[in-house]
Design a protein around this nucleic acid. Sequence first.
DNA 1: AATATAAGTTTAATCGATTAAACTGGCGTT
DNA 2: AACGCCAGTTTAATCGATTAAACTTATATT
Lengths: 333, 333
Amino acid sequence: MKKNVSLKDIAEQVGVSTALVSYVLNNKLKDRINKDVAAKIKQVAEDLNYRPNQIARSLKVQKTFTLGLIVADISNPFSSQIARIIEDEAKNYGYSVIFGSSDESAKKTGDLIKLFLDRQVDGLIVSLPEHTEEQLRYLKKSDVPFVLIDRYYPTIPTNSVSINNYAASQKAVQHLLDNGRKRIGIVAYKTALFHLNERIRGAVDLLAGNASIGMVGIHSINQDVIAAINSFLADPQPVDSIFFTSNLLAISGLKYINSLGIKIPDQLAIVGFDETDAFDLFYAPVSFMKQPLVELGCESLKLLFNSIENRESIASIELEAELVVKSSSIIKK
Amino acid sequence: MKKNVSLKDIAEQVGVSTALVSYVLNNKLKDRINKDVAAKIKQVAEDLNYRPNQIARSLKVQKTFTLGLIVADISNPFSSQIARIIEDEAKNYGYSVIFGSSDESAKKTGDLIKLFLDRQVDGLIVSLPEHTEEQLRYLKKSDVPFVLIDRYYPTIPTNSVSINNYAASQKAVQHLLDNGRKRIGIVAYKTALFHLNERIRGAVDLLAGNASIGMVGIHSINQDVIAAINSFLADPQPVDSIFFTSNLLAISGLKYINSLGIKIPDQLAIVGFDETDAFDLFYAPVSFMKQPLVELGCESLKLLFNSIENRESIASIELEAELVVKSSSIIKK
DNA sequence: AATATAAGTTTAATCGATTAAACTGGCGTT
DNA sequence: AACGCCAGTTTAATCGATTAAACTTATATT
């Protein structure tokens, strides 16, 4: 195996100490160093194709320039788009990202947190599954800067970036009302996650109790979505519109609606949550609440870097989602 | 800032050397160590919640237990699913993954390779953009174990895992022929990438020159797909079926076909490449060539770990894609 | 001439772990 | 009593970089 070139190799070849090589290559003590020696060192470093060992550097300077990212599932487009944005933006700050999927499991989340802390990440961006108060406390105690993204506990103060789910939900429902819909079905997760329950609360508040809600278990999505839609339709006053509070729920629901031969938007208006290619391929392209993914990612990093520089700072940022109207929810002319 | 607990802290508290602590916690020299002392050390380590600093450990043992993963774009479902599988499986081997998106840029790919090498990854899994022979040579010279996934250069021997694109393409086209289609349009990328050209070659060979091909630039997908479809339809003998050689091409094409009001599969049969939710939401769920993603990921890791243990080994693995038939390509009963 | 200052470089400690080699008493053997 | 041996432990080097402090010369100042 070829050995990597180290400071020592350069030092020996030039005939100086490693310290001097380090000073030269890092442009420190600039004005005190002999120009010819500096030039020679740079030349040799170049010739040997020297690349500093970041592990050694990290150990010494106590900084890894690595961030940990925990998402629910990197293969879900919501997560992967966020990951993409964070990876890109972190690179601009000189940071790399290591990542993991929690699979909505509290235990996996805890394991990933420990794994990342062991690797001395400089900070974490985490999307927490439900029932992770313990993991969150561990994280706070660890004293590593971190930011919660998408999901947070309103009663536990932390850095966080999320959207205003309550308002988003109301925008979606109001849009259906504005388009003449009277009976709105809400399909939502049965969950302890605050942000998802805010989506329910927003809709219910606006409809003043006059809402049909279908609850879906995260591990039985297709089955529960079908049951929810069936019950919406079996109602003496069947719904004339459905608001799906997540992208997976919408995809699952639309497949079933397709198979029933129900016409969208004539018989049923649809609004989804989060963007996906699939919405556009539907014969009646699906209206949806669009989350500001770039802002979510960038604001998270801003908070995180703030927190890395100044441990005291804690901030919560709430962004607005935007309604994108396509043909699934409007009255055909 | 709270300092992490180190071996030294434990050693001081117990009143022994750090060496002994290390031996105990790593279960080395088991039979030579006083049981009471060992118990005490373990107890104190537990009490202080000691977690070894992996950076320090990596420096000493010259192994980081980290892999680098370079995909084209982590927000493309093909990449993110692979990333998911690799992350999961690597974790089983005790490895973490750092990742980056090349954006199909040779320069970014080179930058990522350097970044990952600087961080002393133990190995790399790379999906190369076109015109990256130079970056590939650099990688080979670096002597770090790596595996190419999905894409490879047939003339440059490396570890690689890919699918048999030639055969996959023929399966797709043969399926269309079997279902009575006579004029098949192929929509493919204009690219230097070998694996994508294999898809074209497979189709063309089978159709013996009787194929219409629409070439699409990677940076002008929508525009070029539209042009391709227009030309297919303007032909004196218009096509009765289209094979899209990637998921993005299919999505783009289906959107356009939708807008033209063309009926699938009656007027036009469709076969796509790679799975996506979108295919299922289309009113005529789309048939597609399904890549064995789990196998791709797992075989890559197997090759990589082989290569990490034994630098000499080089192997290329070719997997088969499978045709998944839905309603977009079959004759309606 | 004595001393201060500056320029250029090196020494050596350090980050936190690992590990080969050396050490220390106590014990048994002859 | 002298020696070897062994269990149990420590010493010290090492990984590759960073950096405060110390160290040389040479030059300037008084």
